[in-house]
Amino acid sequence: MNVNLKIWRQAGPKEKGGFVTYQNVETTPDTSFLETLDILNERLINEGQEPVVFDHDCREGICGMCSLYINGHPHGPATGATTCQLYMRRFAEGETITVEPWRSAAFPIIKDLMVDRNAFDKIQQAGGYVSFNCGGAQDANNLPISKEAADEAMDSATCIGCGACVAACKNGSAMLFVSAKVSQFALLPQGKVEADRRVRAMVKRMDELGFGNCTNTGACSAECPKNIKLYNIGRMNRMFIAAKCKE
């Protein structure tokens, strides 16, 4: 199987970037998309050129390191899967596949397809935790939590922090990412104690870091590789307004 890869190349954060098309990259339907990029890179190295830089690590869809806008979709055409879980059987023989980095002011490009997502860590640092020191916990079963609440919290906690929601959003909003963490803690008794403080701090930090506002388009959730639901945003908005009123 042969495909053409039209890839955004950019030498550094301040350099001017542009598309370069690499013709006839030889791969197979059973090969993953990132392995196809490996194949291209091997070819480039053998030609004495610099390989395409892209973030990737676990290659099993859980670390959130891989990104890439593929043919206009974050993480490519498959739903509920990350770029590293994308296999070439999803593409047609001879197809030209367009590959771009995440596009968001809050995620500046480092090189080629690699972006800086440090802003996500900073939002979590503002309040994405239960303020509690190691050592003082009670027996785990002293705190019964309904299966429904635990399962729902788990659904929100499953976010991998890849940034696809921001990349998918026309406003570059991080609401789905932030609301997933806020929701996980809001649904569990451990997180309720400081829920007001958390939602205020995380939303404030998100705004400061240059993420856009939410206009309820829903692209974030539609493109999320972990199917984080849109109603997390609704929950966060309710909590935020209530917490602001109490302030």
Binding site: G136, Q138, K147
Partner: peptide, 22 residues
Amino acid sequence: NNIIDQCVAQGVPFAREYGGLL
């Protein structure tokens, strides 16, 4: 055993039975 207590206190959403226990 301390690890499980610690993680639950942190808000790790472990799987639970219908009765609410782990």
